[in-house]
Amino acid sequence: GTEDLKEEAKKALKKGDKERAKRALKKAGLSEDQIKKFIKEVL
C-alpha cells in the first residue's frame, strides 16, 4: 500500500538512493511537488 511505499522511500533515502525513493513515491501516487517535499522532509 501507500504507507509501505513511503517506508520504502524513506529507507532508500537514508541509503542515499534518491532514484529508488522517487520510483516508490510515484507508485504511491504522489505528484512531483509532493515527492520533492517528501524528500526534503526526510533528508
Results as ranks from 00 to 15, higher is better:
residue 31 S to L: 04
residue 3 E to M: 09
residue 16 G to Y: 04
residue 6 K to W: 15
residue 6 K to R: 11
residue 12 A to T: 02
residue 39 I to P: 03
residue 23 R to I: 14
residue 19 E to H: 06
residue 31 S to A: 05
residue 22 K to P: 00
residue 6 K to A: 07
residue 35 I to V: 05
residue 17 D to Y: 06
residue 6 K to Q: 09
residue 12 A to D: 05
residue 11 K to M: 09
residue 8 E to G: 03
residue 10 K to F: 06
residue 15 K to G: 11
residue 13 L to K: 01
residue 6 K to M: 15
residue 15 K to Y: 10
residue 9 A to T: 02
residue 26 K to H: 10
residue 42 V to G: 04
residue 20 R to P: 02
residue 42 V to T: 09
residue 13 L to H: 02
residue 31 S to K: 04
residue 19 E to Y: 05
residue 37 K to Q: 15
residue 41 E to K: 09
residue 32 E to L: 07
residue 20 R to W: 12
residue 8 E to M: 10
residue 26 K to I: 14
residue 20 R to V: 09
residue 11 K to E: 14
residue 14 K to W: 08
residue 19 E to G: 07
residue 13 L to I: 10
residue 27 K to G: 06
residue 23 R to V: 13
residue 17 D to A: 04
residue 33 D to L: 07
residue 32 E to W: 10
residue 6 K to S: 04
residue 37 K to P: 00
residue 17 D to T: 01
residue 24 A to I: 15
residue 33 D to T: 08
residue 34 Q to K: 04
residue 19 E to N: 08
residue 5 L to I: 05
residue 27 K to S: 10
residue 31 S to R: 04
residue 36 K to R: 13
residue 14 K to N: 09
residue 13 L to Y: 03
residue 20 R to N: 10
residue 39 I to W: 06
residue 21 A to D: 00
residue 27 K to T: 09
residue 30 L to G: 00
residue 30 L to V: 02
residue 13 L to A: 03
residue 25 L to I: 01
residue 1 G to T: 14
residue 24 A to D: 06
residue 14 K to R: 13
residue 16 G to E: 02
residue 11 K to I: 13
residue 13 L to P: 01
residue 28 A to V: 04
residue 17 D to H: 06
residue 30 L to F: 13
residue 20 R to H: 11
residue 22 K to I: 15
residue 3 E to R: 09
residue 22 K to Y: 14
residue 3 E to F: 05
residue 20 R to D: 08
residue 12 A to R: 03
residue 34 Q to N: 05
residue 7 E to Q: 09
residue 18 K to Y: 15
residue 5 L to H: 07
residue 13 L to N: 01
residue 2 T to N: 12
residue 33 D to P: 06
residue 28 A to F: 05
residue 28 A to R: 01
residue 32 E to F: 06
residue 25 L to M: 03
residue 36 K to Q: 13
residue 19 E to A: 10
residue 38 F to S: 03
residue 16 G to F: 05
residue 21 A to G: 03
residue 41 E to G: 09
residue 30 L to Q: 01
residue 25 L to G: 00
residue 25 L to R: 00
residue 33 D to W: 05
residue 37 K to E: 15
residue 5 L to Q: 05
residue 16 G to P: 01
residue 30 L to K: 00
residue 11 K to L: 10
residue 11 K to C: 12
residue 41 E to Q: 11
residue 22 K to C: 11
residue 15 K to I: 13
residue 23 R to W: 05
